[in-house]
Design a protein around this nucleic acid. Structure first.
Length: 649
DNA sequence: ACTGAGACTTGGAAAAATGTTA
DNA sequence: TAACATTTTTCCAAGTCTCAGT
């Protein structure tokens, strides 16, 4: 495929959508609920529970101390959780093993518990092999069987995967209750390997409206509770046993509810654009405040704004992996360099952030920030908080006073989106080829991902795939050389012959060289893109931080229509195009801006961009209308919400 | 003012789907 | 068409932030 411009995926059947989007009567305005009310009517079927455990047949044996042994159903089920994971690194981790073993022994019969006292003497190999083979058998099933299975899944999704909210049929994001298994915490999580219990209907709270068809619990069971709370958005909830956290069943991003919330988020970020200069001036002044609390807050804000750090709530010690954000930074996470590589006032950060992703950065900071930090860190132990007078609560309270709706994370959203816009302006060459433009977009996206520290582990076949594309490039070069020499001899031949036929050959070869050279640049650009993206994850920023309207504005600004990616040329070929439709310039009340955005989206759709759930969300936010179904996607509901294909794990 | 439960967004890994190649 | 590569989607953990209760 050609592009992963996230909200611009190509699809062939979208013209009706365009027409509908343009049809004035197709939009509907809806009343806005007051004061925390999220809906008026909510009806659903309740969650789908995990399939019951199927005991192993006698030929699949667990061994203890070399001896085969039949386990009780409960113990066996938990053993399979571990056995399935045998080739995962988790199963070699001491904490994982210890937690697993403790919890496993708890579900054993007393006889089993008495016998099985050492995990090292447990042999799960047959269990592992059994499940590997099962997966393989599934993989090689005939097309027909696979198709049938898919249809079955689809039927279930139709029944459980949708709800009715205020007259709209909405897709549910996670209608399946999480199956039992072993908890996989990230980083060095003290609870990794613990048993995640099977959730029963008796654990589940149902939320719906009083006048709806109340979901019926599975036969022989009851719900924990049925409530009618329209101040929350969830349909069902339960408490998970490992961390004691709540889990929720909620709507898909394509829903009105989620889409509008998402839109609001970007509106708040755009409001910040309007006052960020004042806020920066304020915290810059506060760097010299007499009050310690204000000074710490100012430095923290400086980092949150400049480095897009997360707020950093306090965490319960020993319950989770040891990670920090801005407010929870400790002395050991920061090194101060009076001078580093000829630069004065450099702060070196090294800490584990969300998901235990390492944040490492050397940053040139304002003198006053540096001075303050030195002061904050004086006479403290490495494990002491840098900002001992500060927490996310009072930080956000302060921000709330500066701008309504402002919290620490808004800075991340704002800085991410404005960075995308500025990078697009800087990097895009309107004369460039389609592939080059795509590279520009990805580079702009990459700049955001770097800012937000969105990293991934390089795909395991990365080097190989890199080599492959290099080989392709070499092959293409050779082909070009060959064609060029062919062209040369064709020219010579034509010089002698001077007839029409030989001239035609020359022209043909010329064209071929040109075509090959285009292909070569495309490959080279692709290789660059891939290399630069080795350890960068673009998904999160695309999905959560980049206002889609920026991409729309950029794409409509004048790009090339060719091949499968179709960009618009013309209208405005001048460089000013981005300014006129820029993110910061347009506001929700700006009808011209709104109209332009609408046109842009229509434009996208008329070119055949794919309608993904998120794009449906965009539609809701922007136009209060729904795209029509497309053929590519299965499971289309009566309102025409596109629900997306299968997939996932 | 403080606290923790609750609700909702954000995050990378892994699985499934899809595309490409031998 | 099988095997491999890449893209898309699911999964569920881990954050942020609010709000109710004290």
């Amino acid at each position: 495929n050609t592009t992963h411009l996230w909200c611009l995926r190509a699809l062939k059947y979208s013209v009706p959508i365009l027409q509908r989007a343009r049809g004035a009567g197709e939009r509907w305005e809806e009343e806005h609920y007051e004061d925390g009310v999220k809906w008026r009517f909510l009806e659903h079927k309740g969650p789908l529970f995990a399939p019951e455990y199927e005991p192993l047949t006698d030929n699949v044996r667990f061994h203890y101390n070399g001896q085969p042994m039949k386990l009780s159903a409960n113990a066996e089920e938990v053993a399979t959780f571990f056995g399935k994971m045998l080739d995962h690194e988790y199963t070699t981790n001491a904490i994982f093993r210890a937690n697993f073993f403790t919890d496993w022994r708890e579900v054993m019969t007393s006889a089993e518990r008495k016998l099985i006292t050492n995990l090292n003497k447990c042999d799960f190999q047959e269990i592992h092999t059994y499940f590997t083979e099962k997966t393989e058998a599934k993989r090689v099933q005939s097309k027909e069987v696979k198709q049938d299975l898919k249809m079955e899944q689809e039927a279930i999704a139709q029944e459980y995967g949708y709800c009715t909210m205020d007259g709209h049929r909405e897709r549910i994001a996670n209608y399946k209750i999480e199956p039992p298994g072993l908890f996989r915490g990230r980083g060095s999580h003290p609870k990794m390997g613990k048993l995640k219990n099977r959730i029963q209907p008796e654990d589940v709270i149902i939320n719906c409206s009083r006048d709806s068809k109340i979901p019926v619990p599975p036969t022989g069971h009851n719900w924990k509770e049925v409530r009618f709370d329209n101040k929350v958005t969830w349909l069902a909830s339960w408490t998970e046993n490992v961390q004691g956290a709540m889990k929720y069943i909620m709507l898909n991003p394509s829903s009105k509810l989620k889409g509008e919330k998402d839109w609001q988020k970007f509106e708040i970020a755009r409001r910040l654009k309007g006052c960020v200069d004042d806020i920066r001036a304020k915290y810059s002044a506060d760097l010299k405040s007499r009050e310690m609390k204000s000074r710490q807050r100012a430095v923290a804000l400086y980092f949150i704004d400049k480095l897009a750090l997360r707020a950093g709530n306090e965490k319960e010690e020993g319950e989770t992996a040891d990670t920090v954000g801005c407010c929870s930074l400790r002395v050991e996470h920061i090194k101060l360099h009076n001078k580093l590589n000829g630069q004065a006032c450099v702060v070196e950060f090294d800490f584990l952030g969300k998901d235990s992703i390492r944040y490492y950065n050397k940053v040139l900071v304002k003198k006053q920030v540096f001075k303050n930090l030195k002061h904050f860190m004086q006479n403290k132990d490495p494990s002491d908080d840098v900002f001992d007078r500060l927490n996310t609560h009072n930080l956000n309270k302060h921000l709330q006073e500066l701008m309504e709706g402002l919290t620490a994370k808004v800075f991340r959203t704002y800085n991410a989106s404005i960075t995308l816009q500025h990078q697009l302006e800087q990097l895009t060459d309107s004369e460039g080829s389609e592939a080059e433009k795509l590279l520009s977009y990805n580079r702009a996206n990459r700049a955001v991902a770097v800012l937000c520290n969105h990293q991934r582990t390089a795909p395991k076949s990365f080097d190989q795939s890199m080599k492959k594309i290099q080989a392709k490039i070499e092959a293409k070069k050779e082909q070009i050389d060959l064609t060029k020499s062919e062209l040369k001899s064709a020219k010579m031949y034509h010089k002698v012959k001077k007839d029409k036929k030989s001239k035609l050959v020359v022209e043909k070869k010329k064209k071929m060289v040109q075509k090959l050279e285009e292909q070569l640049t495309k490959l080279e650009v692709q290789a660059t893109d891939r290399e630069e993206n080795k350890q960068i994850a673009l998904g999160t920023s695309k999905l959560n931080y980049l206002d889609p309207r920026i991409t729309v504005a950029w794409s409509v600004g004048g790009w090339v229509r060719s091949g499968e990616i179709k960009w618009r040329v013309g209208g405005s070929e001048s460089k000013g195009m981005l300014e006129s439709s820029s993110w910061e310039a347009s506001t929700s009340t700006d009808t011209m801006g709104r109209q332009r955005e609408r046109d842009a989206l229509s434009e996208m759709l008329s070119f055949g961009w794919d309608v993904t759930p998120r794009l449906c969300g965009l539609f809701w936010r922007q136009f209060h209308c729904r795209p029509l179904p497309t053929k590519k996607y299965t499971g289309v509901d009566p309102e025409g919400v596109v629900v997306g294909g299968g997939g996932g794990g």
